[in-house]
């Protein structure tokens, strides 16, 4: 067997083997590599590389070594899933750097962190004043996570509107001009409804690149032809406007009528309508 052929066969087999191994190791490896896992990954790659090129190494030796190097982290991960103490030992503990707005110098020293490095990490989190920080912790993987003081935290929707209307994830119902039936069904809608909505907006399905339905049953579309202008869905806004108009009308009738009884009726209903408008306005506004 020519040398190049042997190298090729080895390389391909090792490639496939490595692919299988990375699949076994899973996604977690990608998101947070501990230092140990990082080293292991490099070593496995190195062994694989040497094995595929260096024909002096027998396959038996190489495969044994690669299996041990790659399966050991899997075993460690399995064990640390079960046992908290073992997990702390393997993955390390987080260290608190700032507590109650005060820097803990002892902990900095223990992690061999200088103040400059701490400031740099804080700046990475867009914090330039240490005084703004309530709590900061160094995670086992080296990230610094920061909790700002309450008055320095960014404003959220919940701060402004105590009970904001909830929003579920939108569903994509048309992709590349093809109707996706499954998401449509999860929204409790059908092809008939979709057709009707598209007709209302005056577009053909073939021309739709992407269409999504939001959690209030509104359809938003993107067309292949970007020159065509499509209006935003207006149903909710129109409904709100109609409600406000009816409320105003009722108030007007209450002022115009001469009959006491009718006046009372109009006023009561106008008040009820105003209450209704207030109740549904947050849901209809966007």
């Amino acid at each position: 067997m020519p040398i190049w052929l042997e190298t090729a066969i080895r390389s391909i087999c090792i490639l496939i083997g490595l692919f299988v191994i990375t699949r076994i190791l899973g996604k977690k490896q990608l998101s947070k590599l501990s230092f140990f896992e990082y080293i292991v990954g490099i070593t496995v790659g190195d062994i694989a590389g040497t094995m595929s090129v260096d024909l002096g190494i027998s396959l038996q030796e190489g495969i044994t070594s690669i299996l041990i190097w790659s399966l050991f982290p899997v075993a460690v991960a399995r064990l640390s899933l079960r046992n908290k103490k073992f997990r702390d030992f393997v993955e390390g503990n987080s260290t608190v750097f700032i507590k109650n707005g005060k820097i803990l110098e002892e902990n900095l020293k223990r992690e061999k962190y200088t103040v400059d490095e701490l400031l740099e990490q804080l700046r990475k989190k867009d914090v330039f004043r240490v005084a703004d920080v309530e709590f900061a912790v160094l995670e086992p993987n080296g990230d610094l996570n920061v909790l700002l003081k309450r008055e320095k935290q960014p404003l959220t929707v919940g701060d402004v509107f105590p009970n904001p209307p909830r929003e579920k994830e939108p569903q994509t119902v048309i992709m590349d001009g093809m109707i996706l039936d499954e998401p449509l069904a999860t929204m409790g809608l059908g092809r008939g409804w979709l057709k009707e909505q598209l007709d209302k907006q005056g577009v053909a399905i073939e021309n739709v690149f992407l269409a999504q339905v939001d959690s209030y049953g509104q359809l938003t579309i993107d067309l292949y032809d970007d020159k065509i202008q499509i209006a935003e869905p207006q149903e909710k806004k129109l409904l709100l406007a109609a409600m406000k108009k009816v409320q105003a009308d009722l108030e007007l009738y209450a002022l115009q009528t001469n009959s006491e009884e009718a006046k009372a009726l109009y006023e009561r209903n106008a008040a009820e309508m105003a209450e209704l408008v207030q109740k549904v306005e947050p849901l209809l506004r966007n």
């Binding site: 209307p165 929204m187 209030y216 049953g217 149903e235 129109l238 409904l239 109609a242 409600m243 009816v246």
Partner: peptide, 19 residues
């Protein structure tokens, strides 16, 4: 009556229970 129908439709098509 139009408002009634619009509200009914939204009640049916909304995904969130409180809505």
């Amino acid at each position: 009556k139009g408002i009634h129908a619009g509200l009914q439709q939204l009640a049916l098509t909304s995904q969130d229970e409180t809505a």
